[in-house]
């Protein structure tokens, strides 16, 4: 009986039992990992990796950036736009 239970549990872990199947790798904040404390608005190459094609600011849920760094990043992107380093919009 105990072995039956174990089998049952084993199959669920294998992903056959439905429910949460896709366990995505946990996103991590790029700025925390690289220990960046100040985001410079003049660094076009770094900022453009957080600005998708349309010119919008990439949301946190996609990039995985932590809230502190996302706030700093958003400010930097907005400054960069005024300095013509980043576009306001592209189509």
């Amino acid at each position: 009986m105990s072995s039956d239970q174990r089998n049952d549990r084993g199959s669920r872990q294998g992903g056959q039992g439905g429910g949460r199947r896709f366990v995505r790798a946990r996103k991590s904040c790029k700025f925390c990992a690289e220990k960046i404390d100040y985001i410079d608005y003049k660094d076009a190459r770094m900022l453009s990796s957080f600005v998708p094609e349309r010119g919008k600011i990439q949301p946190r849920r996609i990039s995985g950036t932590c809230s502190t760094h996302q706030r700093m990043l958003a400010a930097a992107i907005k400054r960069g736009r005024n300095a013509a380093i980043l576009p306001f919009a592209t189509d």
Binding site: K42, R81, A84, I85, L86, P87, F88
Partner: peptide, 11 residues
């Protein structure tokens, strides 16, 4: 002096 750069949009 960052030098000559392309602008992201015309000014």
């Amino acid at each position: 002096r960052m030098g000559r750069r392309k602008l992201a949009y015309p000014i």
